[in-house]
Design a protein around this nucleic acid. Structure first.
Lengths: 362, 362
DNA sequence: CAGCGGATTTACTACGTGGTAATCAGCGCT
DNA sequence: AGCGCTGATTACCACGTAGTAAATCCGCTG
């Protein structure tokens, strides 16, 4: 059996409670006593029992992170950043994969993840119509992404509209006029605030601002957002015979597929078709040609989300503070696929900073 | 305060212990009683308190997975598979990132991850010289990868030697004779069983078996194994003026960089240089050209490792069963970078099955 | 109808920790 | 010396669960 406070207490000739006080850095412990206890702790190799601590205090020191799939690069990088941010605060992270299963997502929202103090949740299938679910959530929760917007819950997200707009404006600045967009989501009629709709909105705004006529046929619906889907969409676009000189894909994963499909069809990127993605996943600067993208500020998102969740946990279950919304700053990263350099050194790229980070309360 | 067994017991007019028996599917509970209790559980929305359960039973139902970095595609996909395999068994997974920090790795091995019943550990910096550490491990542990081989610990790994050999034999079968290898590890003089050494060994075996002279200058040392490093190594290889008509990179990440570097230098893949990687990460079939690779059997590795760990947890701390070693079956996936097709549909590829899975006891 | 054995249920308790409140030691002051 | 005060330490208990062993119930046998 493991070493307990009791064992330490006996060796240090104090009560278990004094050991507890030392471990928890309570004031009013005599320096000599503290030293003696610490000595005993070291000698016995005592480690606090987290289950017991959890039972007594109601905290586990573990937070949950729920994503669709870790094998999607975007979520892997998000998880990486979240785990790093949590570690800074002494929190561990249980990662759950929901695999785009709506039932699981609803179940998760009603019960939370066992063993955790709170949840960071990046849903895929929930929409505005599920907003009511949030009213009954009785554990600390921070949503990543914004499609259940306006509920009583904290949200950390990105500047989907303005970032998408900036990406398309970049394409326009290259002189492109027939700009296709791949990734509109079939569900999004009912999900006005889904990321796909917001990015599409940014796309339309950019066109409108530049006085470019909007051709609905250039908005390509596709789901889910795997590279294969991007390739399929690009092929259908090519086969459609529609003229186009640029593609904005709503994610980098889609762009990877699109790049392949364009290559197979003999369209040269960026000469014939400029391409820009969204997410700035790690491989995007390694594709051939390297992929321009929008960096949504992943580290900032993770840091902020973990911070908000830690605060909610700190405040306790009862407190009903107002929901907050944070949008991370973004960058447009120009690489070869839209005429940037970036061949010489893999890291080089043009960079256009977008809207500053902003946090709203209310 | 949350609903407890006590509350359920009162409502169902039974003792708390009976509720516990129902929850834990004990035999010898009268069907009527069971139904009444389940009714009460549903009515109150009772959920077991995992901390209390953990305290009482000594089990948390959580396992740890420690990897260098989740943002490396290989580890993200591994984590994906591990989480899925754990979920099948009702286990949650806390993911820890050690970032290639040797101190952290040693600390982890001495204390385990808090809040967990056991650990799956894929170290980066530990070597054969750290084997002694394993003697003092007092928690269930399964190592992923084999460089601390021969200790008292279960290992789940891949057929590094024969898989690498198969990859190189494939290149040879294309008629290539000047085959470079990128990824030899500088530390591996002292780590005879590091994956890099084992894969290099497979490379040499393949050359020897084919009667091809071994040119040490074609073995390129590089560390760490990020794509940038692969690009650097490939550039140095090109600049060296050495003649070569194929490259075997010890990981796909290195291959991604190598593909870029070759493209920049005007070498056409696979006509001038055939390339094959190792790991079969998801993007490898999306690169241009798509990347041939060795699929190390990730799902099998994850499944087996979680199974072994679950068994060790089941057996309890005291039992000192013999260490086991499992090597997953592998496949050589032939894609465009070594002359395969795979352009039409993204998924298509040649496939050559390697050694069957094998498990050794002792 | 007492008695038996297995099925079912229960009382009691400990798991390791930390909050509460009580106790105790030491010190300055009257 | 006696008092009150602060700092330091402690006894006691509860958190929610599940193991142990004892108690109770039920159907049947002799």
């Amino acid at each position: 059996m493991a070493v307990t406070m009791r064992d330490v207490a006996i060796l240090a000739r104090v009560s278990p409670k004094t050991v507890s006080n030392v471990v928890n850095d309570h004031p009013n412990v005599h320096p000599d006593t503290r030293a003696r206890v610490q000595q005993a702790i070291a000698e016995l190799g005592y480690r606090p029992n987290h289950s017991a601590r959890g039972l007594r205090s109601g905290r586990t020191g573990v937070i949950g992170l729920a994503v669709p799939e870790l094998k999607q690069a975007y979520f892997a990088e998000l998880a990486d950043a979240v785990i790093a941010a949590a570690a800074k605060r002494g929190l561990s992270v249980i990662v759950g994969q929901l695999g785009g299963d709506r039932e699981h997502e609803i179940e998760l929202l009603t019960h939370g993840l066992p063993q955790t103090d709170g949840l960071l949740f990046s849903p895929e299938r929930l929409g505005t119509e599920d907003r009511d679910l949030l009213a009954y959530v009785d554990f600390p929760l921070v949503m990543l992404g914004e499609w259940i917007f306006g509920g009583p819950t904290d949200h950390v997200t990105m500047h989907n509209v303005s970032a998408a707009r900036a990406a398309v404006e970049h394409l326009i600045s290259l002189g492109r006029r027939r700009i296709a967009v791949i990734g509109a989501h079939p569900d999004d009629e009912t999900r006005q605030l889904g990321p796909s709709n917001l990015r599409i909105q940014g796309y339309r705004e950019a066109l409108a601002a530049a006085g470019i006529e909007h051709d609905p046929r250039l908005e390509r619906v596709v789901a889910p957002w795997h590279p294969e889907d991007g390739a399929d969409a690009a092929r259908r676009l090519i086969d459609s015979g529609l003229e186009f000189d640029a593609i904005f894909t709503l994610t980098d994963a889609l762009a990877l597929g699109a790049l392949r499909a364009l290559g197979e069809a003999g369209r040269v990127v960026p000469d014939d078709v400029a391409v820009i993605g969204f997410d700035n996943i790690a491989i995007s600067h390694l594709t051939v040609p390297s992929l321009s993208s929008v960096d949504p500020g992943r580290a900032e998102i993770a840091e902020t989300a973990v911070g908000m969740l830690a605060e909610r946990i700190e405040w306790g279950a009862g407190s009903s503070r107002p929901a907050r919304l944070h949008k991370a700053a973004f960058d447009v990263i120009v690489r070869e696929s839209s005429g940037g350099t970036g061949s010489g050194t893999l890291g080089s790229s043009g960079r256009q900073s977008g809207a500053a980070a902003q946090t709203l309360n209310g």
